[in-house]
């Protein structure tokens, strides 16, 4: 049987297989190389001092506590703002909208938003929130910029989850005399919670990794802000990514930069794992019913 395949075909196939294997190996080596290198250079520099101090010339301390807190603030504030909007939009698209053309238009707009690069978001955020609304470079301006940026993610994941809610649920609820909003609140929303959670995780991933959109909107300050200060206008602060950029590019302090990079990698891994877990749950639900 095997002899019927000519030698040249065999050689060609083997060669192609080897090339594909090589491509795959190169990609894995790149990943391992990046992760290994960052951990090797950065892990040793992560000390308790580093993550519990703020940088101060007077005291001679270095630290990234302000950047950690700023990142957290931005995540919380962005999610609080974007969740209702994104979930609301998904509900409109899936439950309320009747005109196909309108749905098409909105989906086109969402796709456009998700294709816009973050530097443009940064610039437009600066124009709108920093200058036009006059919030100054502040964490709130940064968060508002990220709200626009993460909106498509939340809409998409929620919508995907809404599509898995069986129509019988909706019909049953309506047949019992529930209004549309009552039906959405009591039947549809509870069943799409996993999509919302997935959207949150993906958004957090995007926010943690974001730098260009924050550079001109959230600013570069390294002060520790109190829990009630961060949503006030004019409170600027740099996130971990922006701090990494400043330490590496502007100041050449690579030890701190690599420590931040290692922390970011750990966060990336954690978010990746969580999103995979959420996707598995979503799939199970989708096939289970």
């Amino acid at each position: 049987m095997k002899e019927k395949i000519s030698m040249s075909r065999k050689v060609k196939c083997t060669l192609l297989n080897i090339i594909m294997l090589a491509a795959c190996a190169v990609i894995c080596v790149i990943l391992l190389g990046i992760v290994g290198f960052v951990v090797y250079r950065g892990a040793g520099n992560i000390t308790v001092d580093l993550i519990t101090n703020k940088p101060s010339l007077l005291k001679g301390t270095i630290g990234i506590l302000p950047n950690i807190l700023n990142t957290l603030y931005i995540i919380v504030m962005t999610l609080v703002l974007v969740l209702p909007l994104g979930v609301g939009a998904a509900i409109y698209l899936n439950e309320y909208a009747k005109n196909k053309k309108i749905v098409k238009l909105i989906e086109l707009a969402t796709e456009t938003l998700s294709g816009i690069p973050s530097i443009i978001y940064g610039l437009v955020g600066m124009l709108i929130f920093v200058q036009f609304i006059n919030l100054d470079t502040s964490l709130i301006a940064g968060s508002l910029t990220l709200v626009i940026m993460t909106l498509p993610t939340i809409i998409r994941t929620t919508q995907e989850s809404l599509k898995t809610v069986p129509n019988g649920y909706r019909e049953g609820s309506l047949a019992l005399g529930a209004g549309k909003w009552y039906m959405v609140r009591s039947v549809v929303l509870p069943s799409c919670i996993d999509g919302v959670v997935t959207g949150c995780i993906l958004s957090i991933g995007r926010i943690v990794g974001e730098s260009a959109a924050l550079l001109f909107t959230a600013g570069m300050a390294n002060e520790v802000l109190g829990i009630f200060e961060f949503f006030k206008p004019k409170m600027s602060g740099s996130s971990l990514t922006v701090a990494l950029y400043m330490y590496a590019k502007e100041r050449g302090e690579f030890e701190i930069a690599f420590a931040i990079a290692a922390i970011l990698l750990v966060l990336t891994c954690a978010i990746n794992f969580l999103s995979k877990a959420a996707a598995v749950l979503l799939k199970r639900k989708g096939s289970g019913k």
């Binding site: 990609i27 992760v35 960052v38 943690v208 990794g209 990336t268």
Partner: peptide
């Protein structure tokens, strides 16, 4: 995972 790595880390 490669896709989740922040761009500043690639830059660094």
């Amino acid at each position: 995972l490669l896709g989740g790595i922040p761009s500043v880390v690639y830059g660094l």
